[in-house]
Design a protein around this nucleic acid. Sequence first.
DNA 1: GTTGTAGGAGTACGTAGTACGCCTACAACG
DNA 2: CGTTGTAGGCGTACTACGTACTCCTACAAC
Lengths: 213, 213
Amino acid sequence: MYAVKAMPRPRSLTPARLADAALAVLDRDGLAGLTMRAVGAQLGTSTMGLYRYVADRDELEALVVERVLDRVDTRPPLDVPWPDGVRELAGRVRHAVGAHPAVVPLLPAHRHRSPAILRWGEAVLAVLTRAGFTGTGRVVAFRALLGYVVGAIQMEHLGALAGPGTAAIAALPRDEFPLLAETARDAGAVGPEDEFGGGLDLLLDGLARRLDT
Amino acid sequence: MYAVKAMPRPRSLTPARLADAALAVLDRDGLAGLTMRAVGAQLGTSTMGLYRYVADRDELEALVVERVLDRVDTRPPLDVPWPDGVRELAGRVRHAVGAHPAVVPLLPAHRHRSPAILRWGEAVLAVLTRAGFTGTGRVVAFRALLGYVVGAIQMEHLGALAGPGTAAIAALPRDEFPLLAETARDAGAVGPEDEFGGGLDLLLDGLARRLDT
DNA sequence: GTTGTAGGAGTACGTAGTACGCCTACAACG
DNA sequence: CGTTGTAGGCGTACTACGTACTCCTACAAC
């Protein structure tokens, strides 16, 4: 029947351990430091040994992204008003990513293939559906939320008004960019949490208005 | 006084020509094809010659981004209702980037340093200010718009619901991601233009509500 | 023990970015 | 019109990356 001649040697690593090692390297040395050699060293194994577990560097990056994202609780909060549910889900992603800022540049490229993000999307849709969104309205709502969350998280960690970028903008030639300079100064009074939440609330208000009519 | 002993040889390239060459390579061969050697070849000059004009590859990328973005008209449309002004400005950026999709992955990293984006931001703020936004409310409004535009453009070109990603998601196991599958199917009826505009309208509605109260 | 499979390590190749040094073209001066 | 100083242009070469390939070895079933 089945020629069960021999069982191969058991695997000594797990994808999870690999992802943890890569994430440790990423947190320590940043994106530029995330090389196959560095991850191999982190695991105490050879560089090429990694290729027993991932096809290429791209797949390793995907593992890291997934490792960060699958810590978000993707159970849809259906026991609260729907705007609070969306806020909660968005906040969970923001929080998980905030713990590992160096993965931010990797997110856009690996978002599609991440099961964790798919589960998250399913949860968002559950909340939206429960709220009464259907059809194309739900498509637009979902896309808008996803776009905002992705964009806002990037803004936060690559610094435009928040973070180091603020100072740079505040120092702009005031005669050429008077409003930017003024806004950058005002931004000092708004924490990153409030910026993220404030923008999200704008979207949620817009969505609520769609439900009323 | 000034020992004006000798005038150096005049430059044979301009940053603009360099940027055009790099953009041509980017459009033709994609981001992975954008190498110093390829751009040198495109210009008919040597690889190292580029370093007379840029400090490193990063700066060359910044030139490309700037080349794409400085085609957007950044005069604030103040002669229309403010939501239309914002829509116009957002659409201009989306349109400019859409002409060179390969620059999308470069945008987040180079956004801070781009004079064109700063001018654009100044225009957005002019519209918002004219509409009546001030202080922290204006900060949040601006950040939200910027975040949405950046995020939505990336979603559009890296494909989540729109583009090739849609098919992938529509083919998901329906029992595990029923709502995502359904939404992906619904998304077929919504063009990218409508998705972008629809989400933006949600934000604008939310903003309008802030002005009423 | 024997055997088949797959793991692990090391070597080596192609290509990227870029430091460095030589030669040369040009503008200002005599 | 020759001289001269500066910077441009080019080529070479170094380093680090991703990764293909080849050996050797550890293990589970017989």
